[in-house]
Simulated scan of single mutants.
Amino acid sequence: MARAIDVANFIVLQGLNNNFDINNLKLQKLLYYSEVESLTNRNGVSLFEEDIEKWKLGPVIPQVYHEFKRFGAKPITETVSTINFEELSDDPWNFTFVEFNEDSLNEDERNCVVKTMETLGNANPFHLVDMTHSEPMWAKDKDKIILGEKHLKYDRNEILSYFRRL
């Protein structure tokens, strides 16, 4: 299973290679729909394990959001590095920066992203927001979300069940 940050970096790379502007808002929705693609076409297998939260503008993977928030609402222009702490070290300063390598995703994982990008890569971010808001998984918690309740999570079984019926 991939890490959400690696999937996000692959989405950014696909956007840059295909001249699709991708800001953090759009990135979050493309991550979500890549997860949908994985769940529905890989027999319920998740693309990444990180939680997907219900925010006012739809699904968000918080760890990924924070990595890319420095771009604000502007298009993301590069992938981000991650920090790898040495597991067996007592030294908190024993870490390395790791540049994104698309080989960190296997072929099936990359295919989920590519399929998602083929259908939604050029979509307007607010169209993607509207799509997610129309889905029952977000809509059922709309009042809580609008009132500011935090850390409401998507249930992957609900996602799978909903999209299999479509």
Rank of each mutant, 00 (worst) to 15 (best):
V80M: 09
L27T: 06
S161C: 05
D6T: 00
S81Q: 14
P75F: 01
P92E: 09
I146W: 01
V60C: 03
S134H: 13
E67K: 15
S34L: 02
A2R: 00
N122V: 02
F95G: 04
P75N: 11
E78I: 01
T96S: 15
F163L: 03
H66F: 15
V12Q: 07
R110Q: 09
I145P: 01
V80W: 03
A73Y: 12
P59N: 09
L47E: 05
R156C: 08
I11L: 04
E149P: 00
F68C: 09
G15A: 09
P136Q: 09
Y33A: 02
C112M: 07
Q14E: 15
P75Y: 01
K153N: 10
L25T: 15
T132G: 07
I159P: 02
G58C: 08
I11A: 02
L88K: 11
I11V: 14
T82M: 08
Y162I: 11
D91E: 11
N84H: 14
F100P: 03
N101M: 06
N124F: 06
I76R: 10
N106W: 02
L39I: 05
H133L: 12
H151M: 12
Q28D: 05
S38T: 03
C112N: 14
L30H: 05
R110H: 00
M117H: 04
E118F: 09
E99S: 15
V7D: 02
D130N: 14
T116M: 07
L31P: 04
N122C: 08
R165M: 12
N23H: 07
V36N: 04
V98W: 00
K56F: 08
L152Y: 05
E67G: 03
P59W: 05
L30K: 05
K74Q: 13
E135M: 11
K144M: 07
N94T: 05
L27W: 07
F10N: 00
R165A: 14
K74H: 11
L147C: 03
I145E: 02
N43R: 11
R42P: 00
L57Y: 15
N94G: 04
L152R: 10
I159K: 03
F85P: 03
I76P: 05
A123H: 11
F10W: 01
T40D: 04
R70K: 14
E99Y: 10
H133D: 09
L160T: 10
T96E: 14
